[in-house]
Structure formats: C-alpha cells, structure tokens
Write a protein that binds this DNA or RNA. Structure first.
Length: 497
RNA sequence: GGUCGGAUGGCCGAGCGGCUAGGCACUGGUCUGCAAAACCAGGUACACCGGUUCGAGUCCGGUUCCGACCUCCA
C-alpha cells in the first residue's frame, strides 16, 4: 500500500527503488566543505538538502550512519598561484598555523549548520586525521599496478585502469574527448598521460602541510580522502554518496577509480548530486567571486537584497525547489518564500493548539478521504526522490484544512478523531522532523509573552469601552514593533514578524 | 570543441502523455468598530517549428536562447 522510496541515481541515470545493502541500515556519505574560507549559500544548499535526505531516512525508520568529511588538506588553487596549497596560502596571508585556519573555518561551518538547523553527521572525519590510511591506499593502488611514482609524487594510471574497468561512467566522459580538451597544467610533464591524477603529491619547499611517506614528504591527492574515509566508516560498498554536481567530474569519478583499483569493487550503490545555486543565472562559486554569504542574507547587507531574511525562511526557500534543479537567488523570490514560510509555520502553531472535538456534526466521508489522501501524499512526494517542493505543496493544502478547523469554518468533526490525530502527527513530523523547519521566536524568556498579554488586556478593556482611538494606538504601536495582533472569534492572538 | 542539463502564467517553482501543483502578487467575497490574520472564490502558462498519438508543457526530430562540467569548487 505504501509507496517505496525512489532515488535518482546519477550512475544509472534513472530513478531507482531504494533498497539498502543491509536491511534497516543506511550508509550515507556526503562530501563536506573545504575549510579554507567561509561557507557560501551554494555550500549550504547542498548540506541542507542532504540534511533532509538524512532526516527522511531516519523518519522512515532506518538506522543511518551519516558520514560527512572535512577537507582540511588544501587542494590546488588555479594557474595563478603555482599550485600552492590553498590552506597554506591562506595561512601565510593571515600569519596563522594551517591548522588554526582549518579550525577557524570548521567552527564557522558548524555554526552555520546549527543556524540552518542541520543535524550533525554521525562521523565527521578530517583528511589530516587519515593520512596513514591514505598512504596505505596509495600503496595498495601501486601494488595493484594502477599507479606509478614520478619525482616523489604518485599518479593514478587512467589508461591502464581503463583497460580493465570503465572510466568515466558516472559523468559520461569518454577518454578521447577528455584528452582533446586537456590544458597544460602544473606537473603535467611528470605524468604519463594528461588524464592521470595525483594520489600523492610531493611537497615543494614552501609547502607547510606535509607528511612523511614511502615516496618522500608530501600530501595526499585531491580525491583520495573520500575513498579512504568512506571505506573506513561505511565499508567497501555502501548505500548513498552525495555531493554537489560540480564534484561529479573529476572528484567522484576518481573516487570510483581509486576504490575499484585498490579493492576491486565499485564503492557506491546510489550516487546523488545536488544542483548549483546561481546568482543572475551564473553559478555561485568561490572562484567566480559572486558568492553570497549566509550572513549577508540574514542581515540584508547585499546589493541584491532589499532586506534580511531569517535562516529558516532561507531553508524553506531552498526546499521549495527540487535539489536536482539549479536554484536562482533573487530578492522577489526570497520575499515570496518568506511569506509562505510564515504562513506554513502559522498553521503549524495553530495545529499545536488544536484539539479534536465533536459538536454533533457527522463525519463526512468526502472530507475524511480528502484528508487521508493528503497524509498519504506527503509520504508519496518525499518517496519520489525527496521531492520537498511537492511535499510543501501538500503541507499548504493541509494548512488550509487546519486553518478552517481553527476558524470553525469547517467542523473539525467532519473528520474522525483518528484521522485528525493522524493529520496532526504527519503535519508536525514533516514540518519539524523531515523538513527540519522550526519556529523562529523572539528568542527570549516568557517575559515577552507576559508583557504582550498584559498590553492586549489593556487594549481589550478599551475596546469594550469602544475607545477605538486607544485600542488602535496600541495595535499600531505593536505593529510597528513587528508584533501582529490578530482579533479572532475566540479572542486575541499575536505573532512576531 | 566534447559531454550533459534547462526554457512553464506578473514573479518564484513543481509536474512530464489525459486528472486544480503550490507559494507570492493581484481581484471579488466572508469575518471585523476599522484593519490585519484566516477562510472562500477568480483570472492569466507551458521558448519556436514540425512529427507520433484518440489526446502532448509532458514523447520524437529540428531551431533559438541559457547554464553546468571538461581546471580547485557544494
């Protein structure tokens, strides 16, 4: 009766029914941030989307081991800085220890994830914490004959590998096409083939982050850490590997090659890729210089924005589109989402205070079925490749019902108590546990409640006297303070924002 | 150049062979001392040209425009 979870598997290029490798358990690996600068909104989108994936798997009852790495060994920057280690470069600039830089941005990343209400992963391994394992893997790949040493660096032999295994399957690359498109890069002369990639790189004089290895002092290659750490914590083959689209090639492709080369099996059963955040249609990226930082969104301190938007409004905004589509930021869209978010959370709040009651009205079969269908749809939509946009649409349909019950426009007893409780449970759990949205209150103690309660009592007294001038003055002042007064049939209520 | 993806109403954004997506904005109504909120109702759509089909935003072919990856990137 219940639909099954389907995931769009990048490797298969189609939606597939999700069946975990081990019944009841899911191994989930997500490529984490490179901690040499503050996370921008594009990074946040990916992590928020996978937070929902994680949350929904947990909601479905799976025991999930969620591994998300921290890349704290620098990767090569671009042609402009002679292949200097990113983290080392930043460290010199700021006259700090590399690990100090790493710690600084790791802390910032964690804070941002908390602000966005993202659950912490089960394990958050760092690349620098797994140097030994990475050296071991390099050795294994060498032993299998799929890599060679050159000037203290070790390169993966793509040509050799492609003779035994397919290379480029995930991203749909063809070796010849890749070759024709290659540019001259640093270290190209050390390679046998332009397509070969470093799995261990010899450290130059000024390179601060360096470790001893059988091939001399150096640091691990760009793609190795994920292969090593996913295998260590999730096994040689695990269920889901996620990351941004831009990692598909070469990062994920190389990961597959490394794993296959060292122990012969493909590491991942379902590959998931989130699409990019764009600004005016252009990909947001560190190197594009068009990054919008979360703080700029919160404060509104950005040329694109007329005002600030709360973290939860932003989270809601992100979840209103599907993770696989690109996602353009604009002030108008944000504004629309903010309003929608407030409407949804208002219904959430109303529902929490709503109790079932029979008032002699008979249960309507049509209403009963309609509500039950909505409940079912929530699950169906999430099961359809985590379609949060559609799920939210269903939640809005539910909101209409909830508000109608609350306003007594529709008798709550038009549905059975059982259905009502089921609606309440589903709506609450989907908003709070699956989508990870939470109410954003003024954030202080009960004092505010008490004070506003008192002020509203005063206003009611003046209203009873028909002293409209005073009552309006109170309401206007509260509105000015961003407190909205709502005169309902059952008395007065208020909300912030 | 190669590979892949996209073009949906005033804005955002789902859907992808027939069944109202949804949100925001707008209009009318209910409620209210007036408002707000809430509720009800309403309109506007699938880039272009062909084709397949009883029926196509939805499938196929072509055209135009846009983007991503091929180099670190979520």
């Amino acid at each position: 009766m219940k639909s099954q979870l389907k995931i769009y598997n990048t490797l298969a290029r189609e939606k597939q029914v999700f069946e975990p490798q081990v019944e009841g358990h899911v191994g989930l690996y997500v490529c984490g941030p490179t901690v040499y600068s503050d996370v921008h909104l594009g990074n946040c989108r990916t992590f928020i989307c996978f937070d929902v994936v994680h949350r929904y798997l947990v909601y479905l009852g799976y025991k999930v081991r969620y591994v998300r790495n921290i890349t704290d060994v620098g990767h090569l920057v671009d042609d402009q800085d002679d292949g200097e280690d990113k983290i080392a470069k930043r460290a010199k600039l700021m006259e700090l220890e590399p690990m100090e830089v790493v710690q600084h941005y790791t802390n910032g990343f964690h804070e941002m994830m908390d602000i966005f209400n993202c659950n912490r992963p089960s394990i958050e391994p760092t690349a620098t914490g797994h140097i030994v394992e990475q050296i071991e893997m390099v050795q294994q790949i060498l032993d299998k004959g799929f890599a060679y040493e050159s000037n203290g660096s070790v390169y993966f032999d793509v040509k050799k590998y492609s003779e035994s295994y397919p290379y480029g399957e995930l991203s749909g690359r063809i070796l010849e096409d890749l070759r024709s498109g290659t540019r001259e890069l640093d270290g190209q002369s050390e390679k046998k083939d332009s397509l070969d990639f470093a799995i261990w790189k010899a450290a130059s004089e000024e390179h601060i982050m360096r470790w001893n290895s059988p091939w001399g002092e150096g640091f691990p290659g760009w793609h190795l850490e994920c292969s090593v750490m996913s295998q260590k914590y999730l096994g040689k083959t695990f269920d889901i590997h996620g990351g941004g689209m831009d990692l598909k090639f070469p990062h994920h492709e190389c990961e597959i090659a490394q794993s296959v080369a060292s122990y012969g099996t493909s590491p991942v059963r379902y590959w998931m890729h989130t699409n990019m955040v764009t600004v005016n249609g252009e990909k947001m990226g560190k190197s594009n210089g068009n990054s919008i930082m979360p703080d700029e969104l919160f404060t509104g301190n950005h040329e694109l924005l007329t005002k600030g938007y709360s973290p939860m409004a932003l989270r809601f905004f992100i979840l209103q589109s599907h993770y696989s589509n690109n996602f353009d930021i604009s002030n108008d869209a944000l504004q629309a989402s903010e309003k929608g978010y407030q409407r949804l959370m208002n219904a959430y709040k109303v529902l929490q205070g709503l109790a079932y009651a029979t008032n002699g009205t008979e249960v309507s079969e049509a209403e009963e079925q309609e509500v039950q269908k909505l409940i079912e749809q929530c699950h169906e939509r999430m099961n359809d490749d985590f379609n949060t946009a559609e799920t939210i649409a269903v939640l809005f349909d539910m909101s209409k019902k909830i508000n109608s019950y609350n306003e007594k426009k529709l008798p709550i007893s038009s549905i059975s108590q059982e259905t009502f409780e089921s609606l309440k449970k589903t709506f609450t759990e989907f908003v709070r546990d699956v989508l990870g949205l939470k109410e954003e209150d003024a954030g202080d103690s009960g004092l505010t409640d008490e004070l506003i309660g008192f002020i509203l009592e005063m206003r009611n007294a003046s209203r009873e006297r028909k002293d409209w001038a005073t009552s309006d003055q109170i309401r206007d002042k509260l509105t000015e303070l961003k407190i909205q007064v709502k005169d309902g049939k059952e008395g007065v209520s208020w909300t912030v924002g």
